[in-house]
Deep mutational scan, measured.
Amino acid sequence: NQESVVAAVLIPINTALTVGMMTTRVVSPTGAPAEDIPRLISMQVNQVVPMGTTLMPDMVKGYAP
């Protein structure tokens, strides 16, 4: 099972992602793949992402898996 990126903390809208904001988990439906964490760092979210929420590609500005 592939791990997806999950918010480790509450991420406010327009916040640039840091490694400490993200964790990985096997979830369904799958979100952004765990191996993309290095690409996701410094990208901004376009909505509030509550802690424990799977990071879906459409939540991150300019990100395409």
Rank of each mutant, 00 (worst) to 15 (best):
A16H: 13
V9L: 07
L17V: 05
V49C: 04
V60R: 00
M59V: 03
Q47V: 11
I41M: 06
L10P: 03
P65M: 12
V19Y: 15
P65A: 12
V19P: 11
P50C: 10
A64Q: 15
P12T: 09
M59Q: 03
I37Y: 00
Q47W: 09
T53S: 12
G62M: 05
L40S: 00
V5L: 03
G62H: 07
T53R: 10
I37M: 11
K61C: 12
G31Y: 01
A64F: 15
A7K: 00
S28D: 12
N1H: 13
G31L: 02
T24C: 09
G31M: 02
D36H: 05
L40P: 01
M59F: 06
M56H: 06
T15A: 12
K61T: 13
V6G: 01
V45K: 00
P33S: 06
T24H: 10
K61L: 10
T18K: 11
D36I: 04
T54Q: 03
G31V: 02
L40W: 06
M56I: 00
V26E: 07
R25I: 08
Q2V: 13
I41Y: 00
A34L: 05
L10C: 15
N46D: 04
V48S: 13
V48P: 11
N46A: 07
V5Y: 04
L17I: 05
K61N: 14
T53M: 13
S28T: 14
G20R: 12
M21D: 07
A32S: 07
P38D: 08
E35V: 14
M56T: 08
M21E: 06
M22E: 07
P38M: 10
Q2A: 12
S28Q: 13
V48H: 11
T18N: 05
T18I: 08
T24I: 10
T23H: 08
S4P: 01
S42N: 14
N14M: 08
T15K: 02
A32Y: 14
Q2K: 13
V9P: 01
A34R: 03
S28V: 14
G62K: 02
A64K: 15
I11A: 01
K61P: 11
I13H: 05
A64N: 14
M21A: 05
P65L: 12
G20T: 12
L17N: 06
D58I: 08
T18H: 05
G52E: 05
T18E: 12
L10Y: 13
T54F: 04
D58G: 13
M21L: 01
L55V: 05
D58W: 15
K61V: 14
N46C: 09
V48K: 12
V49S: 01
E3D: 05
G20A: 14
G62A: 07
V49W: 04
P12F: 09
R25P: 08
V5E: 01
A64P: 11
N1D: 14
M59G: 05
D36W: 08
T30D: 09
P57C: 09
P57D: 02
M56Q: 10
M51G: 05
P38Y: 11
P38S: 10
T54M: 05
T53E: 11
A32R: 01
I41T: 02
D58L: 07
R39V: 12
G52Q: 03
I13A: 14
V9N: 02
A16M: 12
I13F: 10
T23R: 06
S42W: 09
L17R: 00
A32C: 15
P33F: 06
L17G: 03
K61A: 11
G52W: 08
T54R: 00
T30F: 14
V48A: 14
G52P: 02
A16I: 14
Y63S: 03
T24Y: 08
M43A: 03
Q44D: 04
A16S: 13
G20Y: 13
V48C: 15
I37S: 01
V6I: 14
V48I: 12
A34I: 06
V5P: 00
P50S: 09
V26Y: 13
V27F: 01
T30E: 12
M51R: 14
M59D: 03
M43E: 02
V6C: 08
V48F: 09
M21W: 07
V45I: 04
S28I: 13
E3H: 12
P38L: 09
V48Q: 13
L40N: 00
T18F: 07
N14R: 02
A34P: 10
K61H: 12
I13C: 13
P29W: 07
P38A: 10
E35L: 11
I37H: 01
M51W: 07
V48E: 15
T30H: 15
L55P: 03
V19S: 13
T54S: 03
V60L: 06
M43I: 06
G20H: 14
G62P: 04
M22S: 07
V45F: 04
P50A: 10
L10D: 15
V19A: 14
S4Y: 07
L17W: 05
A8M: 08
M21V: 04
A7N: 01
P50I: 09
L10W: 11
A16Q: 12
T30M: 15
L17M: 03
G20L: 12
V45L: 07
E35Q: 14
V49D: 00
D36T: 01
G31R: 00
S4E: 01
A8H: 08
T24L: 09
L40V: 02
G62I: 02
Y63I: 02
Q47M: 09
Q47C: 15
L55W: 04
T23K: 07
N14P: 00
N14L: 09
A8Q: 06
P57A: 10
N14G: 12
V19R: 15
V5Q: 00
N1T: 13
M51H: 05
E3Q: 13
P29R: 05
I41G: 02
S4K: 02
M59S: 05
M22N: 06
P33C: 07
V49A: 01
R25Q: 09
P57W: 15
G31S: 05
V48Y: 10
T30L: 15
I37Q: 04
A8K: 11
L55I: 14
A7P: 02
M51I: 10
A8Y: 08
E35R: 15
M51A: 14
R25W: 09
A32W: 14
P57Y: 10
V6M: 02
S42R: 09
R25A: 13
Q44V: 15
L17Q: 00
I41W: 00
Y63T: 03
S42F: 09
N46I: 09
S42L: 08
T30K: 15
I13D: 10
P38I: 09
V49F: 06
I11N: 00
N46R: 07
G20N: 13
V27P: 05
V26C: 12
V19E: 13
M56A: 02
V6L: 07
V48N: 15
R39E: 06
A16F: 15
D58A: 13
P57S: 07
S28E: 11
M21Y: 04
I41F: 00
R25L: 09
I41Q: 01
V49T: 03
I11E: 00
M22K: 05
G52D: 05
L40M: 03
A7D: 01
V5R: 00
E3F: 12
A8V: 08
P57N: 01
D36Q: 03
K61Q: 11
P57M: 06
V26A: 10
M43G: 00
Q47Y: 07
A16Y: 15
A7I: 09
M22Y: 01
G31P: 00
A32T: 10
L17A: 03
T30Q: 15
T54G: 04
P50T: 10
V5C: 07
V48W: 12
M51N: 05
P33I: 04
I11R: 00
P38Q: 10
G52H: 08
E35I: 13
V48L: 13
V5T: 01
M21Q: 04
M59W: 04
G20Q: 14
T24E: 07
T53H: 13
G31D: 00
T53A: 15
Q47K: 03
E35W: 15
V5M: 01
A34S: 07
P50L: 10
A32N: 06
T24G: 07
A32G: 05
V60A: 01
M51T: 06
Q47G: 01
P29K: 01
P57I: 08
I37W: 04
L40Y: 04
P29E: 03
I13G: 04
S4C: 08
P12H: 09
D36C: 09
T54I: 06
P29G: 01
V26Q: 11
L55A: 02
A64E: 15
P12Y: 09
M43L: 14
M56P: 01
M59Y: 05
G62E: 06
M21P: 06
M43S: 05
V9W: 04
R39A: 07
R39W: 09
N14Q: 05
V48D: 15
S28N: 13
T53L: 03
V60C: 05
A64R: 15
T23S: 11
Q44K: 14
N14K: 05
R25T: 08
S4Q: 02
K61W: 12
V27M: 00
I41E: 03
I41P: 08
L40G: 00
Q2T: 12
S42V: 07
A32D: 04
I11G: 00
V5A: 01
R39G: 05
V45D: 02
V26P: 07
S4A: 02
T23F: 09
A8E: 02
Y63Q: 06
L40C: 07
G52T: 01
P57T: 04
M22G: 06
A34K: 10
